[in-house]
Design a protein around this nucleic acid. Structure first.
Lengths: 334, 334
DNA sequence: GTGCGCAATCGAAGCGGTTCGACTTGTGCG
DNA sequence: CGCACAAGTCGAACCGCTTCGATTGCGCAC
């Protein structure tokens, strides 16, 4: 591999001149610059990332911490990963993806060794053990998902409370008074997946205010339990006139479950849900729903992170940003 | 961040002694080692990855090149990514994940700048433009997916030809003489996704040998086109007694399509398919099928890659390894 | 003619490690 | 008693790049 010294020799200039020609931080005569460019092309020179990182203390790499829970419906994760990767690249950063089970250890490893300039934490839970490591790290971080304590952190999440209220309002306005709610699986709650109870509690509170009833249930994450449990829940609540599904796996299974029961929406049952645009499209879900945009969430997280990396002062105080929900009416309610 | 000089000062030794204590490459007295360990703990010292990479010319990072095709059924990709990441970590490597559209450019960037010690290419096509860049790179690479020219490369893929033959044999043995085959979508073929025609051609050849008929069709990748096209195909071939589905999106949609038609397997139609264990479980697919294991593919690729990184000579000649298919009978044929 | 400012370039130090050769001690052996 | 050798440690060079301060030569104003 050619080094900057090789280029300098080939072009008959000093190493520093080559460096300045590359970075443009000092003026270089047109003639010299062209000579250097020719030398670079001839030698196929590329700046060595490690050496540059050492000299500048900037790696131009962002860490991306994922946690994969074996018991989970996987398709969702990728929707965050891709936009994050794309946005990072647009801003000149590469992505070091870490999937270790031991999140805090992984975080310490990549921040402590200076492999990354900052990190994005995905799927943050209420009391996420990674946050302690993040706060202790010299690099900034951005979270996707709301933790219990946001102190000092940039946080991005959907406004699940507002989403729940919008859906309840929608159903209430249509006259529904008994509503079944399918939440994420119990293990998501146990793990501290706050979006589960943020949504559910807001829905229940709203229902109480209207004096209507919402019956909450946990969903399942894998077939055939998903369909079985949906059947059981619908059997148990024959009087409910509407269904709110806050769970990807369940909503994907719902169409065939309804078909099996000979039930159709909205004639026999009003159905609303909450899922990402892509997810709805992949499975062709015909339901009125809050459409989330993981891409925008990921994108904003990366942008804020990079802002904070480049200029910690100018990035200002930590932000917690809730993305406003958007309801798309597909006529599955009446 | 504490440096090795800080540790040396704190422990009252030279920098090289600290380095040797860390690596164990020279003998260090018990007493000195303990003093150094105490200093490291006190200062919270971690080796700086960039500096180490510069000195050793080893980054302990592997590149992972993905291509996401907008028009594709996404859930499949993650099944490769995770095992690759896990295996890499077990062997001491981190993963730099690159999702750029321009694969060759991305490959040049990360290899040319020495950010990685090797790369894994996912979803390799027949004439994959990334291969040229890979062959020119100083680092080794491992492929998942079979290219037209494997010269000089370590390649891992499922044996799609054998898989097709096994399924055709199975159906032929049961007496089926008219069989419909749903291949991956046309754009997969156009892009050079060789697994599509490797499977189809082997099936057709086998059928010809037996003197039976196989009617091949392309599948679709997104709803509602998937179901619509399945209906159309089944309408067009009322006499076919068996169905081979070589497409994740289609097989996931098949249960509800069959239900809608009032058709049940195996009574009205024998169905066989090819999908990964995880995929089948997620969607609870009840079909007799070849079960692929993306995890084993990814794992083998990483292992071979690391072997080649650590000891290029001992790793021997490039290998092309086809994973043997395994048929799991779930009683969807008769 | 002198002094000044600016454009263009160079040399050297520094980033944080690793590694090679050399040096000091202590030990066993002839 | 002298010597070879091993154990333990150190100093310096090096990995490839960036950046600061200094130097040179030039045109221009006074």
């Amino acid at each position: 591999m050619a080094t900057i010294s090789d280029v300098a020799r080939e072009a008959g200039v000093s190493r520093s001149t080559v460096s300045y020609a590359l970075s443009g931080k000092r003026t270089i005569s047109r003639e010299t610059r062209e000579r250097i460019e020719r030398a670079i092309a001839a030698l196929g020179f590329t700046v060595n990332a490690g050496a540059r990182a050492l000299a500048t203390s900037q790696t131009m790499v962002l860490g991306l911490l994922l946690q994969f829970h074996k018991d989970e419906f996987a398709p969702a994760m990728l929707q965050y990963v891709l936009p994050i990767s794309d946005t990072a690249r647009e801003l000149g950063y590469d992505i070091l993806m870490v999937t270790e089970t031991d999140g805090p250890a992984a975080l310490k490893r990549i921040t402590g060794s200076g492999m990354v300039d900052g990190v994005v934490l995905l799927d943050v839970t209420h009391r996420d053990p990674r946050l302690e490591a993040l706060r202790a790290a010299p690099q900034p971080g951005a979270l996707v998902g709301l933790p219990g304590d946001t102190e000092g952190l940039d946080v991005f999440d959907l406004d699940f409370g507002e989403a729940a209220r919008m859906l309840v309002d929608h159903l209430y306005g249509l006259g529904h008074r008994e509503i079944v709610l399918i939440s994420p699986p119990k293990h998501v709650f146990d793990r501290g997946g706050a979006y589960g109870w943020r949504f559910r509690d807001a829905a229940l509170e709203r229902a109480a205010r209207y004096g209507i009833q919402i019956f909450p249930y946990y969903g399942e994450s894998q077939q055939p339990a998903i369909s079985r449990s949906l059947h059981a829940i619908l059997d148990a609540r024959p009087d409910a006139s509407a269904l709110i599904v806050h769970n990807d796996a369940s909503i994907a299974a719902l169409p065939s479950v309804l078909t099996e029961r000979g039930v159709s929406a909205p004639d026999d049952l009003s159905v609303v849900s909450l899922y990402s645009k892509d997810f709805g499209r992949s499975f062709s879900l015909p339901y009125t729903a809050i459409e989330t945009s993981p891409d925008s969430l990921g994108r904003q997280a990366v942008q804020q992170l990079v802002r904070r990396i480049l200029n910690p002062e100018a990035a200002g105080a930590p932000v917690t940003r809730f993305i406003a929900p958007e309801l798309v009416n597909r006529g599955s309610t009446h």
